[in-house]
Protein backbone atom coordinates (compact mmCIF):
# COMPACT_ATOMS: atom_id res chain seq x y z
CA UNK A 1 0.00 0.00 0.00
CA UNK A 2 2.79 2.39 0.95
CA UNK A 3 6.43 2.00 0.07
CA UNK A 4 8.94 4.67 0.95
CA UNK A 5 12.52 4.34 -0.19
CA UNK A 6 15.16 6.81 0.97
CA UNK A 7 12.74 9.69 1.34
CA UNK A 8 14.61 12.88 2.11
CA UNK A 9 13.12 16.19 3.17
CA UNK A 10 15.41 18.95 4.30
CA UNK A 11 14.61 21.92 6.48
CA UNK A 12 17.12 24.28 8.06
CA UNK A 13 18.31 22.37 11.11
CA UNK A 14 16.27 19.24 10.44
CA UNK A 15 16.40 16.46 7.87
CA UNK A 16 13.93 13.63 7.49
CA UNK A 17 15.51 10.59 5.90
CA UNK A 18 13.67 7.32 6.04
CA UNK A 19 12.37 4.20 4.36
CA UNK A 20 9.33 2.23 5.39
CA UNK A 21 6.63 -0.03 4.03
CA UNK A 22 3.00 -0.58 4.88
CA UNK A 23 1.82 -3.83 3.21
CA UNK A 24 -1.82 -4.49 2.32
CA UNK A 25 -3.90 -5.73 5.23
CA UNK A 26 -1.70 -4.32 7.98
CA UNK A 27 -1.86 -1.56 10.55
CA UNK A 28 1.50 0.10 10.95
CA UNK A 29 2.26 2.47 13.79
CA UNK A 30 4.68 5.35 13.73
CA UNK A 31 5.99 6.50 17.07
CA UNK A 32 8.39 9.17 18.10
CA UNK A 33 8.74 12.26 20.22
CA UNK A 34 7.38 15.66 19.23
CA UNK A 35 9.53 17.03 16.42
CA UNK A 36 10.86 13.59 15.48
CA UNK A 37 9.51 13.91 11.93
CA UNK A 38 6.20 12.05 12.08
CA UNK A 39 4.08 14.89 10.72
CA UNK A 40 6.70 15.70 8.08
CA UNK A 41 6.49 12.10 6.91
CA UNK A 42 2.68 12.22 6.79
CA UNK A 43 2.74 15.52 4.92
CA UNK A 44 5.16 14.04 2.39
CA UNK A 45 2.82 11.11 1.80
CA UNK A 46 -0.12 13.44 1.30
CA UNK A 47 1.87 15.74 -1.00
CA UNK A 48 1.43 18.72 1.29
CA UNK A 49 5.18 19.26 1.10
CA UNK A 50 7.68 18.51 -1.64
CA UNK A 51 10.35 15.92 -0.91
CA UNK A 52 13.96 16.57 -1.86
CA UNK A 53 14.63 13.02 -3.00
CA UNK A 54 13.55 9.42 -2.65
CA UNK A 55 10.82 7.23 -4.06
CA UNK A 56 7.34 7.06 -2.57
CA UNK A 57 4.74 4.64 -3.89
CA UNK A 58 1.14 4.71 -2.70
CA UNK A 59 -1.53 2.26 -3.92
CA UNK A 60 1.02 1.04 -6.44
CA UNK A 61 1.55 4.48 -7.99
CA UNK A 62 4.39 6.93 -7.73
CA UNK A 63 3.46 9.86 -5.53
CA UNK A 64 3.63 12.27 -8.48
CA UNK A 65 1.07 10.18 -10.39
CA UNK A 66 -1.59 10.14 -7.68
CA UNK A 67 -4.76 11.60 -9.20
CA UNK A 68 -7.83 13.18 -7.62
CA UNK A 69 -9.56 9.83 -8.11
CA UNK A 70 -6.77 7.99 -6.28
CA UNK A 71 -7.21 10.40 -3.38
CA UNK A 72 -10.76 9.05 -3.03
CA UNK A 73 -9.18 5.77 -1.94
CA UNK A 74 -7.10 7.44 0.76
CA UNK A 75 -8.55 8.62 4.05
CA UNK A 76 -6.48 10.91 6.19
CA UNK A 77 -6.45 12.70 9.49
CA UNK A 78 -3.95 15.48 10.12
CA UNK A 79 -3.29 16.40 13.72
CA UNK A 80 -3.73 20.15 13.36
CA UNK A 81 -6.19 20.67 10.56
CA UNK A 82 -9.69 19.84 9.46
CA UNK A 83 -12.76 21.29 7.79
CA UNK A 84 -13.26 25.02 8.21
CA UNK A 85 -14.49 25.81 11.71
CA UNK A 86 -17.26 27.90 10.20
CA UNK A 87 -19.03 24.84 8.79
CA UNK A 88 -21.60 22.73 10.61
CA UNK A 89 -21.70 18.94 10.60
CA UNK A 90 -24.79 19.08 8.42
CA UNK A 91 -22.83 21.08 5.85
CA UNK A 92 -19.89 18.70 6.10
CA UNK A 93 -22.18 15.77 5.32
CA UNK A 94 -23.26 17.48 2.11
CA UNK A 95 -19.70 18.37 1.20
CA UNK A 96 -18.45 14.81 1.77
CA UNK A 97 -21.28 13.53 -0.41
CA UNK A 98 -20.12 15.82 -3.21
CA UNK A 99 -16.46 14.85 -2.87
CA UNK A 100 -16.88 11.09 -2.49
CA UNK A 101 -19.36 9.07 -4.59
CA UNK A 102 -18.87 6.17 -2.13
CA UNK A 103 -19.75 8.32 0.90
CA UNK A 104 -21.86 6.28 3.35
CA UNK A 105 -24.23 8.97 4.53
CA UNK A 106 -26.35 6.74 6.78
CA UNK A 107 -23.30 5.26 8.48
CA UNK A 108 -21.77 8.72 8.94
CA UNK A 109 -24.98 10.13 10.44
CA UNK A 110 -25.43 7.14 12.75
CA UNK A 111 -21.83 7.38 13.96
CA UNK A 112 -21.81 11.10 14.72
CA UNK A 113 -25.09 10.73 16.57
CA UNK A 114 -23.58 7.84 18.52
CA UNK A 115 -20.63 10.08 19.42
CA UNK A 116 -23.02 12.85 20.45
CA UNK A 117 -21.79 15.39 17.89
CA UNK A 118 -24.35 18.15 17.24
CA UNK A 119 -25.03 18.71 13.55
CA UNK A 120 -26.27 22.29 13.80
CA UNK A 121 -23.30 23.87 15.59
CA UNK A 122 -20.22 25.30 13.89
CA UNK A 123 -17.13 23.10 14.20
CA UNK A 124 -15.18 25.91 15.87
CA UNK A 125 -17.52 25.53 18.86
CA UNK A 126 -16.61 21.83 19.20
CA UNK A 127 -14.25 20.61 21.92
CA UNK A 128 -10.87 19.14 20.92
CA UNK A 129 -12.25 15.64 21.45
CA UNK A 130 -15.32 16.29 19.31
CA UNK A 131 -13.14 17.64 16.50
CA UNK A 132 -10.91 14.54 16.72
CA UNK A 133 -13.91 12.21 16.46
CA UNK A 134 -15.28 14.12 13.49
CA UNK A 135 -11.97 13.91 11.62
CA UNK A 136 -11.80 10.13 12.07
CA UNK A 137 -15.43 9.69 11.02
CA UNK A 138 -14.84 11.69 7.85
CA UNK A 139 -11.77 9.59 6.96
CA UNK A 140 -13.69 6.34 7.48
CA UNK A 141 -16.90 7.38 5.78
CA UNK A 142 -16.20 6.44 2.16
CA UNK A 143 -14.49 3.05 2.33
CA UNK A 144 -10.95 4.21 1.60
CA UNK A 145 -8.38 1.49 0.91
CA UNK A 146 -5.70 3.25 2.88
CA UNK A 147 -5.84 5.40 5.98
CA UNK A 148 -3.07 7.82 6.87
CA UNK A 149 -3.78 9.00 10.40
CA UNK A 150 -1.62 11.50 12.24
CA UNK A 151 -2.51 11.50 15.95
CA UNK A 152 -6.19 10.57 15.41
CA UNK A 153 -6.83 9.95 19.12
CA UNK A 154 -5.24 13.19 20.28
CA UNK A 155 -7.49 15.02 22.73
CA UNK A 156 -9.82 12.09 23.33
CA UNK A 157 -10.61 10.65 26.75
CA UNK A 158 -10.08 6.94 27.42
CA UNK A 159 -13.61 5.86 26.49
CA UNK A 160 -13.71 7.93 23.30
CA UNK A 161 -10.25 6.66 22.34
CA UNK A 162 -11.46 3.10 22.66
CA UNK A 163 -14.50 3.94 20.51
CA UNK A 164 -12.24 5.33 17.79
CA UNK A 165 -9.92 2.33 17.95
CA UNK A 166 -12.92 0.03 17.67
CA UNK A 167 -13.99 1.92 14.56
CA UNK A 168 -10.54 1.36 13.07
CA UNK A 169 -10.65 -2.36 13.91
CA UNK A 170 -14.11 -2.65 12.33
CA UNK A 171 -12.83 -0.79 9.26
CA UNK A 172 -10.04 -3.36 8.86
CA UNK A 173 -12.43 -6.28 9.33
CA UNK A 174 -14.66 -5.06 6.50
CA UNK A 175 -11.91 -5.56 3.94
CA UNK A 176 -8.69 -7.47 4.61
CA UNK A 177 -6.82 -5.62 1.88
CA UNK A 178 -7.12 -2.29 3.67
CA UNK A 179 -4.16 -0.72 5.46
CA UNK A 180 -3.55 1.94 8.04
CA UNK A 181 -0.50 4.03 8.83
CA UNK A 182 -1.08 5.66 12.18
CA UNK A 183 0.89 7.80 14.59
CA UNK A 184 0.04 8.36 18.21
CA UNK A 185 1.83 9.57 21.27
CA UNK A 186 -0.32 7.17 23.30
CA UNK A 187 1.60 3.94 22.92
CA UNK A 188 -1.13 1.84 24.50
CA UNK A 189 -3.29 2.63 21.46
CA UNK A 190 -0.63 1.33 19.13
CA UNK A 191 0.08 -1.77 21.20
CA UNK A 192 -3.50 -2.92 20.94
CA UNK A 193 -4.01 -1.90 17.32
CA UNK A 194 -0.87 -2.20 15.22
CA UNK A 195 0.69 -5.22 13.55
CA UNK A 196 4.07 -3.54 13.44
CA UNK A 197 5.55 -0.18 14.17
CA UNK A 198 8.39 2.10 13.23
CA UNK A 199 10.14 4.32 15.70
CA UNK A 200 11.35 7.64 14.35
CA UNK A 201 13.86 9.85 16.09
CA UNK A 202 15.47 13.07 14.81
CA UNK A 203 14.21 12.33 11.30
CA UNK A 204 15.53 8.75 11.13
CA UNK A 205 13.83 5.39 11.55
CA UNK A 206 15.70 3.81 14.43
CA UNK A 207 13.59 0.73 15.05
CA UNK A 208 11.12 -1.41 13.13
CA UNK A 209 9.49 -4.32 14.88
CA UNK A 210 6.36 -6.42 14.88
CA UNK A 211 4.19 -5.53 17.86
CA UNK A 212 3.71 -9.16 18.95
CA UNK A 213 7.44 -9.74 18.90
CA UNK A 214 8.09 -6.56 20.83
CA UNK A 215 5.61 -7.47 23.52
CA UNK A 216 6.82 -11.07 23.83
CA UNK A 217 10.58 -10.93 23.21
CA UNK A 218 11.66 -7.48 24.32
CA UNK A 219 12.53 -7.04 27.98
CA UNK A 220 14.42 -4.86 30.40
CA UNK A 221 17.32 -6.36 32.33
CA UNK A 222 18.13 -4.65 35.61
CA UNK A 223 21.69 -5.45 36.65
CA UNK A 224 24.38 -4.29 39.04
CA UNK A 225 27.71 -3.07 37.63
CA UNK A 226 29.34 -6.41 38.58
CA UNK A 227 26.74 -8.50 36.79
CA UNK A 228 26.82 -6.10 33.83
CA UNK A 229 30.56 -6.70 33.42
CA UNK A 230 30.00 -10.46 33.00
CA UNK A 231 26.78 -10.18 30.96
CA UNK A 232 26.71 -11.52 27.39
CA UNK A 233 25.92 -8.31 25.50
CA UNK A 234 25.31 -9.67 22.03
CA UNK A 235 21.50 -9.27 22.42
CA UNK A 236 21.60 -6.00 24.33
CA UNK A 237 20.20 -3.22 22.14
CA UNK A 238 20.59 -0.25 24.47
CA UNK A 239 21.97 0.39 27.95
CA UNK A 240 21.08 3.17 30.37
CA UNK A 241 23.06 3.87 33.53
CA UNK A 242 20.85 3.86 36.63
CA UNK A 243 21.40 4.46 40.36
CA UNK A 244 21.60 0.69 40.99
CA UNK A 245 23.75 -0.11 37.96
CA UNK A 246 22.35 -0.55 34.45
CA UNK A 247 19.06 -1.20 32.74
CA UNK A 248 19.51 -2.99 29.45
CA UNK A 249 17.06 -3.35 26.62
CA UNK A 250 17.06 -6.73 24.89
CA UNK A 251 15.02 -8.40 22.16
CA UNK A 252 15.94 -11.90 23.47
CA UNK A 253 14.12 -12.09 26.77
CA UNK A 254 14.14 -15.89 27.03
CA UNK A 255 17.87 -16.11 26.41
CA UNK A 256 18.61 -13.98 29.46
CA UNK A 257 15.93 -15.61 31.60
CA UNK A 258 17.42 -19.04 30.91
CA UNK A 259 21.09 -18.11 31.16
CA UNK A 260 20.95 -15.52 33.92
CA UNK A 261 18.23 -16.67 36.32
CA UNK A 262 19.59 -14.38 39.03
CA UNK A 263 18.93 -11.08 37.23
CA UNK A 264 15.66 -9.13 37.08
CA UNK A 265 14.04 -9.47 33.65
CA UNK A 266 10.98 -7.26 33.19
CA UNK A 267 8.51 -7.45 30.32
CA UNK A 268 8.00 -4.04 28.77
CA UNK A 269 5.73 -2.06 26.48
CA UNK A 270 6.34 0.36 23.64
CA UNK A 271 6.88 3.32 25.99
CA UNK A 272 9.84 1.70 27.73
CA UNK A 273 11.35 0.64 24.41
CA UNK A 274 10.99 4.19 23.06
CA UNK A 275 12.59 5.69 26.15
CA UNK A 276 15.48 3.24 26.15
CA UNK A 277 16.18 3.50 22.45
CA UNK A 278 16.24 7.29 22.70
CA UNK A 279 18.08 7.69 26.01
CA UNK A 280 20.28 4.62 25.94
CA UNK A 281 23.71 3.98 24.49
CA UNK A 282 25.08 0.89 22.82
CA UNK A 283 26.28 -1.83 25.22
CA UNK A 284 30.02 -1.82 25.87
Amino acid sequence: MIEIKDLRKEYPGFTLQCSLAVPAGTITGLIGQNGAGKSTLFKSLLRLIRINSGKVTILGKDLSEISENDMRMIGSVMAESGFSGYLTLRSIRRIMKSFYPAFREDWFTAQYRKFGLPDDRQIREFSTGMKAKLKVLCALSYGAKLLILDEPTSGLDVAAREDVLDLLRAYMKEDEERSILISSHISKDLETLCDDFYMIHEGQIILHEETDRLLSDYAMLKVTPEVYEKLDKQYILRTVQESYGYSCLTNQREYYQENYPEIVVEKIGIDEVVLHVIRGGKAQ
Partner: peptide
Protein backbone atom coordinates in the same frame (compact mmCIF):
# COMPACT_ATOMS: atom_id res chain seq x y z
CA UNK B 1 -9.93 33.26 4.28
CA UNK B 2 -12.29 30.53 5.50
CA UNK B 3 -10.16 27.91 3.76
CA UNK B 4 -7.08 29.28 5.45
CA UNK B 5 -8.63 29.25 8.93
CA UNK B 6 -7.16 26.60 11.30
CA UNK B 7 -4.63 25.19 8.80
CA UNK B 8 -7.52 24.56 6.46
CA UNK B 9 -5.37 24.29 3.33
CA UNK B 10 -3.50 21.38 4.87
CA UNK B 11 -6.78 19.51 5.18
CA UNK B 12 -8.24 20.66 1.85
CA UNK B 13 -5.37 19.22 -0.14
CA UNK B 14 -5.79 15.81 1.47
CA UNK B 15 -9.24 15.72 -0.17
CA UNK B 16 -9.64 14.63 -3.80
CA UNK B 17 -8.72 18.10 -5.02
CA UNK B 18 -5.66 19.09 -7.01
CA UNK B 19 -4.16 22.49 -6.38
CA UNK B 20 -5.00 23.58 -9.92
CA UNK B 21 -8.62 22.53 -9.46
Amino acid sequence: AYDEFDNGYQFLFTLPVSRRT
